[in-house]
Design a protein around this nucleic acid. Structure first.
Lengths: 339, 339
DNA sequence: GATAATTCCACCATCGATTGTGTAGAATTT
DNA sequence: AAATTCTACACAATCGATGGTGGAATTATC
């Protein structure tokens, strides 16, 4: 259980801790340590399986080489892919990431943030719940480098990475309209969520531009879940008037809606068209592969990392940056031209 | 940028660091500190937004309250769900987790392990690549509490959490046989992977018990990917003789195989039956929902955490434990009775 | 041979928190 | 009034690593 430390090595070779430290950090030349001493130390360190103690180093250096990443739902493939890319990019820069999952629980978010700050992470990438922005303020108050991800909060000045939610949605709706759809339903996410608000705004704008009216009954906001998608779709489809197409605000809702449509005995796209935000692996697996708005997941991850690291490295006050990325309409086969 | 430390508070109130420490750790009564002093300290700490420094505490306590979790592919829903449950359980016990993704890269695995040990994590939950067990030995050598997850390595004594791969597969194969299938293909994972070996063993055993012969051409080992599933299925289906059913060794392979089958112009389950290991959200979304062997994901996660923490807490040498969990055959509609 | 110039390292403070031990001064006892 | 007991803290060592400063020993220079 006895671990080798710098002191262990120093004692054996009869040099000081600092000398060992300098050698093992490749600073021995600059510090005027002889090659002979350096070699002895290097060899012994290997023999004793010396492994640096990062807690000590972090304490001393006031730098942990750790980044906190907080997402709302790690089981959503959108986030798990983001995390994969973020982890890979940060790892390449020598950073480790601590991943936290809020599960849309505000208390959890708050407590996780405190925990990350206690651990003195060098920065945080946060995909906030947005019900309250108090948690975010704490991070800023503590002066911890922060990148807000997948959200767009007007009242909060910060670095952002986000996509053109409104424009992306408009592409989708306009595509539906070009196929002759006039009655288009919107099954969205939480009403306090900026993505949902912007996607909804895009939906309304496109409808308005085409002089199409929006039926209140065709619009459902709710949670970003399969269940919400399913319930909303079936509820809408069981009423007297039904739309000819649906827009869904994320992958989970889309899957739920698809299942709901099928369970209502309707076929996609013959009986009803559907288009949604987020691309995902199984979108191509349905009887008719799904047409979606794809977010540039890897690019988003890389931009978040780059933005954050530039904050971490530079103590000077760069103005806040918003990295706004473009979405792409991926046309598959879940909508039908009814012109 | 000046952070409050115990010393800051101590200086203002004119007490010593230790007194402040004891108060903020609720040890003041035991240490004979007056309520008046304690209150003053508590109030001031709050006013100054004091936040404990975990790097310092960890160094002193030789305990980081951090657990490393290493998985092979975080974007696989099986793992992302495991991680979700593991994180939740550990969080409840005051631990933070560092999630690492090897992406089946052995060097990465090795380097991640070293990094975790450098950070002095209190324990590691590892789902190893298994091409080499050297990396695992390092963890054991360093005496870091370890739980091996989702694998079964005979040569390596350790704590394990795993499922009845062989028995589970047998349930699946026997189900197919009971439906009259005699020509059953096996599309598996990496040949060095213990899960794959055991699942394959289960497949062979069931076939043998039913006196069915295994066609070499119907068996494909490879990577746990969509592509491998797709390629294998199409390759098999394009040959002269084709099986009436497939068993697939994980969720990715299953999806790939399904797509392959569809792209060959065949219908599931009318033309060909399929059954696979791992349940997943979209299994229910296909035209005909998929029949699968479900692993008790949450239970696996909780057992891994419990096992690990018992190692972390007790320094005494408990004998190694293997937590072997049962799988469940979830019958949906991807197989057809051809009796 | 004496002084100057290097070479090569040791010393010590520091990061922030924790804890065992020691001790003034007040309170109580005899 | 002296002895004893409490009360309420302070002190200092420790965890392991880092880096500025200073100085002994060796070599070079005239």
């Amino acid at each position: 259980m006895n671990v080798t430390t710098l002191q262990t090595i120093a004692d054996i070779i009869n040099v000081s801790r600092s000398t060992v430290s300098r050698v093992l950090n490749n600073k021995w030349e600059r510090s005027g340590i002889s090659r002979v001493t350096a070699d002895k130390i290097t060899v012994l360190a290997k023999d004793l399986n010396y492994l640096k103690n990062d807690t000590a180093r972090s304490l001393r250096e006031k730098k942990t080489f750790t980044i906190g990443v907080i997402v709302r739902d790690i089981t959503n493939p959108f986030y798990s892919h983001i995390i994969k890319f973020v982890e890979r990019a940060l790892y390449a820069k020598g950073y480790t990431i601590i991943i936290c999952n809020t599960g849309y629980d505000l208390d959890r978010e708050s407590s996780l943030i405190n925990s990350l700050i206690s651990r003195r992470v060098d920065g945080i990438i946060l995909s906030p719940i947005q019900k309250s922005i108090e948690n975010i303020s704490i991070i800023k108050f503590r002066n911890v480098p922060l990148v807000l991800f997948d959200c767009n909060i007007d009242e909060m000045k910060a670095d952002y990475v986000l996509v053109d939610n409104e424009a992306g949605t408009m592409k989708a709706i306009e595509y539906l309209i070009s196929q002759g759809h006039k009655e288009i339903g919107y099954i969205g996410g939480n009403s306090y969520d900026s993505n949902n608000r912007l996607r909804y705004a895009g939906y309304r704008k496109s409808m308005q531009l085409a002089s199409l009216s929006i039926h209140k009954n065709y619009v459902k906001h709710g949670r970003y879940t399969f269940k919400h998608g399913y319930d909303s779709a079936t509820e809408i489809l069981r009423s007297k008037n039904v739309p000819t197409a649906f827009f869904t605000a994320n992958n989970r809702i889309m899957l739920g809606a698809c299942k709901g449509i099928m369970d209502c005995g309707l076929q996609i796209p013959d009986d009803i068209s559907i288009i949604g935000f987020d691309d995902f692996e199984t979108a191509t697996m349905l009887p008719n592969p799904l047409t979606v708005i794809r977010q540039p997941v890897q690019e988003m991850a890389l931009n978040a990392v780059a933005l954050l690291l530039s904050r971490v490295d530079k103590t000077n006050n760069i103005p806040y940056v918003t990295s706004l990325l473009k979405t792409e309409l991926v046309i598959r086969n879940s909508t039908k031209d009814i012109n």
